[in-house]
Each structure stands twice: as C-alpha cells, then as structure tokens.
Amino acid sequence: MSGPATSRERPAARPPGVEGRTGGDLEPFEAVVERHGALVLRVCRAVVGPDAADDAWSETFLAALRAYPSLPTGSDVRAWLVTIAHRKALDAHRAARRRPVPAERLPEVAAPEGPVPDPVRDERLWAAVAALPPKQRRCVAYHHLAGLPHAEVAALVGGTPEAARRAAADGIAALRRTWGREDGE
C-alpha cells in the first residue's frame, strides 16, 4: 500500500528517452536571458557600438537559443554567450565593411524609444570606446565587462594571453584617460 501512496507525492515520471539526456538539467532559457541579458548588451555596445548593439544582442540570443538544448550541463553559460556575441560582432563588422555608411558613427539622436535620461554622457562614452583600437575594445569588453580570464579572451581575439592582458590594460587606461579628461572639463 505504501507504494502508490508515496508515488502520489512525487512529480510525474519523465517520459521515456528524456531522463538522463544532456539537456535534461538545463534551466529555462528565459532564466539565461534574465541573468545575462544586461551583460551581453554591454559587451555588444562596447564591441560593435550602440547603433549595432541591439542587432548583435538579438542575433546572439537567437543563436544561443538554437544551440541551447545541446549545451553540456555545467557549462559556463556567460563565457558561452560572450563567445557567440564575439562571433556575431565579427559578422556585423564584416557586413558593415560592405556597406557604404561607416558602422562606427555615433547616433545623432538616441536610437531606442522612450526617454534617455543622459544621452550626452552616453554619446561621449561611446565616442571614447569607439576611439579604441578594435583589439583593445574587445579585450576590455571580454575581460573587464564579461569577466573572462585573459587566456579565454586570447582564444577569442587571437594572440597570447599576455598580449590580451596588455591590450585590456591599455584599453581601460586609455578609456579612463579620455573619459576622465572629458568628464573633468
């Protein structure tokens, strides 16, 4: 008698074939977007600029959603997303190079709908970020923003971990210098 009584308390059994599958322990993708969405948007802004960031963000999460069920359990989801964002940024740069309009231009008016409390501050920041050499931009974004170790950053941008460390340090120093000077004026 105890069998049915206890089984009644348990959640319904999984259908055959689902139990033990690689993706069986993955949390709902909405939780991934909730946890990492803001960070990925900042990385996209730093790497491709505010104009192209929305598209890069959408492409990143759509590609991530597609691949998500086969992501091995226990993966570093943030590093995985940054890797996808990096590839999408390269795609965006390649596409931009084919267009006559330069991709690095800053918006004349704030692009998103709704009020933007401090567009002047944002615009100056993006100008400072856009002024960095591409490799420094990426190393700053992937290390200082996304928190990837230099070795992982190097794997994405090429070169040695030491070169990635130096590019990140040079980039953040240049950014602080530019930003600090403009801010102080």
């Binding site: 803001a38 960070l39 948007l41 900042r42 802004r45 730093a46 505010p50 704030a110 998103p112 709908e113 709704g114 009020p115 933007v116 409390p117 401090d118 501050r121 944002d122 920041l125 700053v140 200082h144 923003l145 953040i172 950014l175 930003w179």
Partner: peptide
Amino acid sequence: DEDLFATADEGA
C-alpha cells in the same frame, strides 16, 4: 568597469 557601460536606458 561594468557600471561604466551601464547606460541609463538599459532596462527599457
């Protein structure tokens, strides 16, 4: 460094 890139309209 993260906050540096957190623009005001990010939530919306």
